[in-house]
Design a binder for these strands. Sequence first.
DNA 1: GTAATGTTTAACCATTTGGTTAAATTATTT
DNA 2: AAATAATTTAACCAAATGGTTAAACATTAC
Lengths: 203, 203
Amino acid sequence: MTEQDLKTEEKILEAAMTVFIQKGKAAARMQEIADTAGINKALLHYYYRSKDKLYESVFSIVIKQLLLPKIFKILQEEEDVFALIHQFADFYVGVINKNPFIPLFVIEEINKNPNRLSNAVLNSGIPIEQVIARFQKAMDEGKIRKTDPRQILVNLISMCIFPVAARNMLLPILFNNSKTEYKKFLELRKTEVAEFIIQSIKI
Amino acid sequence: MTEQDLKTEEKILEAAMTVFIQKGKAAARMQEIADTAGINKALLHYYYRSKDKLYESVFSIVIKQLLLPKIFKILQEEEDVFALIHQFADFYVGVINKNPFIPLFVIEEINKNPNRLSNAVLNSGIPIEQVIARFQKAMDEGKIRKTDPRQILVNLISMCIFPVAARNMLLPILFNNSKTEYKKFLELRKTEVAEFIIQSIKI
DNA sequence: GTAATGTTTAACCATTTGGTTAAATTATTT
DNA sequence: AAATAATTTAACCAAATGGTTAAACATTAC
């Protein structure tokens, strides 16, 4: 049944996501994925023939449906540079926070399969150069001080992603293991990061 | 022979480091580590009984000898907040750049063994609170604008670590796969990150 | 109701991999 | 030279794991 089909496939994908993220591809066990999905190994292979194929699917979903399209579109839509930075930080921190597994997943993938993600990004039509150009333009117009615009972009991305990727390190060290405190902290970051950057680059 | 002993043990540790970082613990193969070290599997087990023990050794070295002691001492020595930020960024970017495997290694470890690293940090006597307090003091003195000092610290760490961890993603996207360009970029970051922060928080 | 599809069970296979062992060889020490 | 330690070779084992298969059962479609 189509209805049931989707449900099971969804269940599998979510389970696979969880396990692949927690354990990494190599350490992830098909049995555990099946268990997490509430089905058995045979059915798991019935839907996704191999571990590789399953991983491929998960990766594809994470990248194509969660990361690429939504995130960077903002950069095209927003006119003002400062508003753009705000939108970006707000949305990016939000997405990452909702899917805290993404950064690690992506970072791990990057290092084991360097070309795949960068190709995906490069082929996605994401106008990185346009973003860079936008910063450049703002510099030329005297709105922000002059620096390598890539530094700004890297700073922005770093500050959005890292705190989530390093969550398990920050939690005990900075937040006494209080998850609510950490959540509040991340919530504040949505505006904080943008303000931090704007404060730094505005003239 | 003591001389040879150290050499072989060193070779093994370096090889293990390389492989563990590139592949992650689970995907790392003892055979590959042996090959990388230029020895055979039997000798590998002769020195380090098991994969777990070997990993433990590598992790211990990375954390204790490379990360913890050197990095944060600066924070105690430097008087001026701005100088402190400069020293920190300079040193941190430098260390990470020299050992670009560290961030991923640590991040992976964090997520598979959440307590170990944070315990290490907490038990290392590193005065995180003092760092926070230093920012706080600078705020009280009206030297920097008021924010959650943890935000500053997290920003600092994020901007130092992330660009290296995401190296393989940034390289093709922002630097046309030019390693020299990327290296220049990171070299500049040593001062750039500090300036970026100071510019943002100074009054 | 019957065919098709989804799902379970459970046994099974092939491969990979961590780890061992024992014997032979080479280098070091004393 | 003799003893000791380092290193290699190569065969081997046990466990884990990805993946298969076939038969039975359940559910849904037509």
